[in-house]
Design a protein around this nucleic acid. Sequence first.
DNA 1: TTGAAAGCGCTAACAG
DNA 2: CTGTTAGCGCTTTCAA
Lengths: 339, 339
Amino acid sequence: MTEKKQKKPTSFDVARLANVHRSAVSRALSGKGRVSEETRERVIKAAQELGYRVNYLARSLHDQNSGLVGIVASRLDTPYRALQVKIAARDLLNKGYCPILIVAEGDVALSGLIDRLLNYNVAGMIVTSDSPPAGIIDECKRLAVPVVLVNRDVGDVQADRVQLDIEASGQMAFDMLRAAGGTRFAVLAPREQTYTVTGRARAFAACCQAAELPVTMITPHRQNYVDGLEAADLLAAQDDSIDAVFCTTDLLALGCLDGMRVTYGRQIPQDLQILGYDDIEQAGWLGNNLTTIKQDAGAAAVLAVELMQARIEDATRPFETATIPISPVWRGTTRKTAG
Amino acid sequence: MTEKKQKKPTSFDVARLANVHRSAVSRALSGKGRVSEETRERVIKAAQELGYRVNYLARSLHDQNSGLVGIVASRLDTPYRALQVKIAARDLLNKGYCPILIVAEGDVALSGLIDRLLNYNVAGMIVTSDSPPAGIIDECKRLAVPVVLVNRDVGDVQADRVQLDIEASGQMAFDMLRAAGGTRFAVLAPREQTYTVTGRARAFAACCQAAELPVTMITPHRQNYVDGLEAADLLAAQDDSIDAVFCTTDLLALGCLDGMRVTYGRQIPQDLQILGYDDIEQAGWLGNNLTTIKQDAGAAAVLAVELMQARIEDATRPFETATIPISPVWRGTTRKTAG
DNA sequence: TTGAAAGCGCTAACAG
DNA sequence: CTGTTAGCGCTTTCAA
């Protein structure tokens, strides 16, 4: 208890105190080999006394498995992503892994960070960052590190994926707005390309065209709230026959809603119907009451973890793509408000 | 390139290929010892050829420093916390550490998870979880693992801290509401105790009492949006002479705002002035336009990392408490709207 | 059941 | 400048 160098106790210290060999300590504590009840007890007692804890790092050196897993995520300060990461991390933790969080914002040298993950010998990684560098994914494959891509399109890389059905998403949006009585459509397609967001905008437009209904593409810069505000400006500048707009993320939708309502004094849904996508918590807030399409963040995270684990256990299994469930959530920004 | 066992190359493999000794590889790659230009080149070339990367885990075994740092956070799906964790993680990454994310939700055996962190030999940890188990902090101290507590009150444990000034917060809230013309106050004090939230509610009430102005305590269950809604119900049930309410978090404020406005048809700020705390992104959204007190999440995160690093470098330095900057943000839920 | 010994991958102190 | 050597803390054969 002296305040000095307090070196952490090692299995050797425990062994000495319990009067056995280090290997006995290992066996007793891991429960892997046969040990007599008596030594087991002595070891456990000694370990407790010393406050000994196994050094996983040393252990991993031996059995080639660190138990560390990387979560590579961008836009962590965004409600949807935060929830997704939280659930993935929790799930990983429950399964005995230890998640390392890599935040990938903007152009910060992502590949350097992923490199670092590789240096830590991660057992796998879950990538839910925008535009992960494709080269890195190859590198992971080369090193036999399982990677699961969440809603990301990385060239034609072979990997396990958890994805939205883009076509179904566009179709569902179209069906919802149509069912709510929309006739002249607009869709928000951010200029900054993102696989799923841009994709569903395109799919939605395709549905409109197939039905020979007019659709206008509005292109805000990115996919956040402020971009929704920008979209409102663009929308207001259009001829106002547009009566229904599919905002490809809830953040866009909420910005657009506020912009149209507060800045331009439009009545929603009377003058214009708005549909979002994601069903983030804020969509359900009373003041917003946004009709949207729920993308199940929890399910996506859990699926990702499952896929990763499956590949860790069997590196040769065929690549799999799991689909994230989606469902309509009717609220107050459309004229139709119930199933 | 064959699809077989692909064991990861070790420094030994590189050494063999470059025709030098393993230690030369280490020296060349770490840039720590003197190496001739020629060998350095050969080593680097060989390393690249093999796709070799240093195994940090093995290295850490030698120099007793894993470079791993724990971030223990609860309520990660909350805007303020998500932002804080994002910035802390990014900062850690920039400084060469690798953050392990522990999500501490509810009663999930937190101490087991922190134990795991210790097993991974983390260089330090940043705790921004609600009610971290005090025992664990002691354990960290015993093992000489630096811990910095962010806005947490853990008994009288000695540790580095990053904290809000609770008294100043209550005072600022009071001053703002008073300056905006409030005369009969209410304050939201969640029943689920949280050091800072409960604390500033108390401090605010004290200011009212000191000024001999009436103040009503409203006690919603927790501190989220839905609890704000609950608070609105409680508030509406009061006699309606209350003209200004300090909601101790923005989430509470936003819920209360929506509840009063949507459910009870009150005009804000005419009928009631509302003040939040935190300045989360949503507070600034046009439809909310919440007057609040900004708690600088970025600054808090950066301070935490700094404190942790300082202690890693010098374990004997005196414990320090850094204060998170706060500032008024006037928006539309108070009658006064500018500085 | 238990002890001995080898080895995981890397680094640093020490010779040469 | 470079090779040798001795660990870091743990696990796992292999004998005894």
